[in-house]
């Protein structure tokens, strides 16, 4: 006879599935990068307690289905080395994931591998995980290396898009215009030529680094500091799916971490306590409080780089299926 507290189960990162008696365990992999040695451990859980199959989640975690609710303690024990190795914050060792509301933080492959990435997305994702997990509020955060946005940060509550500020050493430029062509064809056409030298339209430039990548003489190089575009409140869902909009442009790592942490305070304060399952997307809360109130909470104590542009008021579009 099963007698379960489904709220506790869910908070422990298990799903209440459609199959009576069976759950599924979600394994967090911040930044979507793990060492191969962990795969046999996941395999072992799936083969010992699951149905031998593993689902790759959209958030870059693993979901191991077909686990008996009665085996959750045993599974939690087997999860421990994975949790340890991936350095997941945890309240009680051996008891599995402390919470599940703040979802696994995903990241594109980033500068470890990708030629376009402007920063190490995995490292930033792991750092963010350390800062905000375990929190059970429903936050989705994703990191992407460049404006191509392969991880689709614009469908997240918080999307962090890497930017580099191109540095131009005019004496190393012979005016071959490889950068101009690349910017025009692959990016936003922010470069023009004046007197055989390149002029960058700083308002247009999205910091993708195509100029740097295509420069054959190192006339274009990257800024020592990596900057980020912080896009907020993208979401999917039944009522009003929408893409995230720019909040900060040319923001620094510290500012982004602080804003996201501040947002937990905002949500705690304004969340609808009657919301089904105690879950409410941040975006709907902001819809209720107004953007300026959110901004007040989010920017509390945030130190901005002089380059940072703060957008506002921010409006979101998207489709309103709810007729509002």
């Amino acid at each position: 006879m099963l007698d379960l507290n489904t709220k506790k189960i869910k908070k422990n990162a298990y799903r209440v599935t459609k199959v009576r008696g069976e759950t599924a365990s979600r394994v967090r992999v911040p930044g979507g990068l793990l060492t191969a040695e962990l795969l046999p451990l996941i395999q072992n859980i799936a083969e010992t307690f699951g149905n031998g199959r593993i689902h790759l989640t959209t958030r870059q975690g693993f979901e191991i289905p077909g686990i008996k609710y009665t085996d959750m303690d045993a599974v939690n024990a087997l999860l421990q080395p994975i949790i340890d190795k991936l350095e997941i914050n945890q309240e009680i060792p051996g008891k599995g994931y402390t919470s599940a509301g703040t979802r696994n933080i995903s990241a594109c492959i980033g500068s470890n591998t990708c030629p376009f990435a402007t920063y190490n997305t995995t490292n930033f994702a792991q750092k963010m995980e350390k800062e905000i997990f375990p929190n059970d509020l429903h936050f989705k955060v994703a990191f992407t290396g460049c404006a191509n946005d392969c991880i689709k940060t614009r469908m997240h509550d918080f999307g962090i898009i890497g930017m580099t500020e191109p540095q131009y050493e005019k004496e190393r430029c012979m005016g071959c215009q490889a950068c101009v062509k690349a910017c025009k064809k692959k990016s936003v056409d922010a470069l023009s030529v004046e007197n055989y030298r390149i002029v960058r339209n700083t308002e247009k430039c999205v910091g993708c680094g195509e100029c740097v990548i295509n420069c054959p003489t190192r006339a274009w190089t990257r800024s020592p500091v990596t900057y980020y575009r912080l896009v907020i409140m993208g979401r999917t869902g039944k009522r009003n799916p929408r893409l995230a909009e720019d909040f900060l442009v040319w923001a620094t790592e510290d500012a982004i971490i602080k804003i996201i942490k501040n947002t937990y305070g905002f949500v705690n304060n304004y969340i609808d306590r009657e919301a089904p399952g105690g879950k409410e997307h941040i975006g709907y809360i902001i819809d209720r409080t107004g953007f300026e109130e959110y901004k007040k909470w989010a920017m509390e104590g945030v130190e901005l780089d002089p380059r940072t542009i703060v957008k506002g008021p921010v409006y979101w579009s998207g489709i309103h299926y709810d007729g509002k």
Binding site: S111, A117, N120, G209, R218, T221, R222
Partner: peptide, 15 residues
């Protein structure tokens, strides 16, 4: 060594 001066992120150039 010009640190981070390369074509790709975190790649140095020797020049």
């Amino acid at each position: 060594r010009f640190v981070g001066d390369g074509t790709f992120t975190y790649i140095d150039t020797i020049r």
